[in-house]
Design a binder for these strands. Sequence first.
DNA 1: CGTACTCTTGAACCGTCTCAAGCTATGTGG
DNA 2: CCACATAGCTTGAGACGGTTCAAGAGTACG
Lengths: 253, 253
Amino acid sequence: MSGQNGRSVSTRRYPCENCPLRPLPVFREFTAKELAYVTHFKKGELAVERGATVLVEGSHSAHLYTVLSGWAFRYKLLSDGRRQILNYTMPGDLIGLQGSVMGEMQHSVEALSPMLLCVFERGELHDLYRNYPELAYDITWLASREERMLDENLLSVGRRSALERCAYLIAFICARADGVGLIARKPVAIPITQQHVADTLGLSLVHTNKTIRKLAARGLVRWRDGGCEVLDVDGLKELAHWEGLGEERRPLV
Amino acid sequence: MSGQNGRSVSTRRYPCENCPLRPLPVFREFTAKELAYVTHFKKGELAVERGATVLVEGSHSAHLYTVLSGWAFRYKLLSDGRRQILNYTMPGDLIGLQGSVMGEMQHSVEALSPMLLCVFERGELHDLYRNYPELAYDITWLASREERMLDENLLSVGRRSALERCAYLIAFICARADGVGLIARKPVAIPITQQHVADTLGLSLVHTNKTIRKLAARGLVRWRDGGCEVLDVDGLKELAHWEGLGEERRPLV
DNA sequence: CGTACTCTTGAACCGTCTCAAGCTATGTGG
DNA sequence: CCACATAGCTTGAGACGGTTCAAGAGTACG
């Protein structure tokens, strides 16, 4: 069934036992019992097109998602239209937990590429907490991870120069995309426009462009085909005074 | 027993049944069973002085805290000393969850006033998740709330002007402090210096000062005794285009 | 009584913004 | 196939918001 606004729900289930993400080394092992429950918890799959809005600020979504494939970003708007991108989401990330736990969504989510999402039902979250404490703990783990990334982004926007910020952002996205199958081929290609970069870093589009040109002049990145090609991640990290996000293996729900 | 670095552990327990926070209308009701478990979960109390560092970036703390009284702030440092304040913590807030769940602390916490903290043991968190799903859910709730505040702060630092940012920050702190006994008397007094404001908003101290003077000239705030007195919260909210943090009652762990 | 911390103000500088224009793709309808 | 529109990137010039440097005043504290 095809959707009217870039969404379509597929009834064909990608069974969790054949989850394409779970075998990846960045994710933790899972007991068979947990796997069985997640399979039961998962209600279906949702395919969204590039540019589609997955969740809207102000709504009360009945669903909670895990990204199976594709890129998206979370953002908030000020009443006069100024936009702030808060973070990016990639395979293995939860979408909509805030709304599920607290009720109303206070940010929106938009797809940067075609995406496939696992759909869970908000109402069953209590059930999960009651019966699968390990999974509940994993969800808290993922929430803490998101918080940690936000801390880092805030540090960046608040205290780094434009050049450092750009370098940081690109290195950050790279570090996250690495390991979840988004950057199979080198050089790494990130599907964002310079407007996204500007709205993430609190800069104007014009200045972002000039800053990116400086990074390009140093041979760190290249902008092509409406996206970013990363040539030297380590150079970017060094320029940004960023240590990387020192992550071990993480849970996947 | 008095500490060497602004900490002292009191063996006298403030029993959870007589918790001074729980009766406040901003917090949710609690079952007797949950209360009993929290009492068991709580290992003692920690008193810290103003200016003391509660948690340090890079450490692996064995503890997790709930603020019983007093103010603090979370922050991160860049290698060259630039500081970004991430958020403020007040009574009822959890401190150190990130570190407890993921291992290493990636931010520090410093007290803005004398504080009293309930001490929990990190190792028992799994136990809590296993036996008290409602409490586990509450912890996730609190983590989501923190995330929501960070989203809002990021929007502010990224997209609001200096004047709007200052207005937002003061209104935000006010809104949070209201209801947890921190601002008993009017006018509201917030124990932060202009340096804290600057480091929260990503501004220089000098410009922060000039901006605050503008707010003062409009009769919105007054700076006195090394702290901020709020004269017109609604005026600040309007200036910042901020709707308030629309919170219902929240859990307390 | 000196030292430290906080707030305050002025002046010069520069990082970033806004405005404006042009360029290159890509896609669409005639 | 061309005409036109749209989205994204690029560049220059001038204006402005915010930074840095510098100095001084008030208060708290040992």
